[in-house]
């Protein structure tokens, strides 16, 4: 019998799930941010804590200013979420093995019950996409009625981040398996991609060359953010055109 710990993991492993984000289409409308919060039971933290940078968006739209009035320009809106790195900076620094790489789904996992809240992972994440529960942000009644039962409700002292809607991945796989088939491309998608009115976010299997996301990723001049750090991110960005 093979024990789980005997399985060797190669650092350069290709991913399984990935995204293509077209910044030229992104209008910064925040629909993805809201959809993500509703799907993943993300707490709102209020004005004071969000002022301290403690808001827990798993996805945020970045935008920067260039130039000065009247030649001022906003850089293309950039949805920034966990890049599900193939070789993630957050993983080796966790003393509790709470942020580990999923061998099966090739995702960076955050195992809430293991997390002890050292925040090393967030400090080591070059994309700054991890959010920490600084308090128990309670939802007053009856707001908890909207909580998604497929996603753990996190408590104080736990790190959290984008999971690529792993609950949807599992559900789709479960349905496909019960019907004796493979999950087909586009059968399901993440909450952000499903909401996006401009279709700027496309999600799918990057290890299937014929999937929509792979086809899009191959064309043109897509970039992967901070690829030079050797993180092997799974999200390809297209800036203009």
């Amino acid at each position: 019998m093979i024990r789980p710990e005997e399985i060797k993991m190669s650092e350069e492993e290709t991913g399984k799930w990935g995204m293509v984000i077209n910044q030229d289409l992104c209008t910064g409308c925040q629909a993805c941010v809201a959809a993500c919060a509703m799907e993943n039971n993300i707490s709102f933290v209020g004005e004071v804590d969000s002022g301290y940078g403690r808001s827990m968006h798993w996805i945020r739209i970045e935008r920067f200013w260039e130039g000065e009035y009247p030649e001022v320009k906003m850089t293309p809106q950039q949805p920034m979420l966990c890049q599900q790195c193939g070789h993630a900076n957050c993983e080796p620094v966790c003393p509790a093995y709470a942020t580990v790489h999923s061998q099966a789904e090739k995702l960076n996992l955050q195992v809430y019950n293991r997390c002890v809240g050292t925040r090393y992972c967030a400090n080591n994440c070059p994309y700054q996409v991890r959010a920490f529960n600084w308090r128990d942000y309670k939802r007053p009644e009856p707001l908890p009625n909207q909580l998604n039962p497929d996603v753990t409700v996190r408590r104080m002292g736990v790190m959290e981040k984008c999971t690529f809607c792993i609950q949807r991945i599992h559900k789709a796989q479960d349905v496909a398996k019960s019907e004796g088939r493979e999950v087909y491309d586009g059968e399901f998608t993440t909450a952000c991609a499903q909401a996006c009115p401009a279709n700027a976010i496309v999600f799918g299997r990057v290890d299937h060359p014929e999937s929509l996301v792979s086809q899009l990723a191959r064309k043109g001049h897509g970039i992967k953010h901070l690829e030079e750090l050797g993180t092997y991110p799974q999200i390809t960005y297209f800036k203009e055109g």
Partner: peptide
């Protein structure tokens, strides 16, 4: 809307279950 929503539509539930 062909299956798409905006942020306000997404947050409708916080009106439904508003305290």
């Amino acid at each position: 809307n062909l299956g798409k929503t905006c942020a306000r539509g997404q947050a409708t539930l916080q009106g439904l279950y508003n305290p």
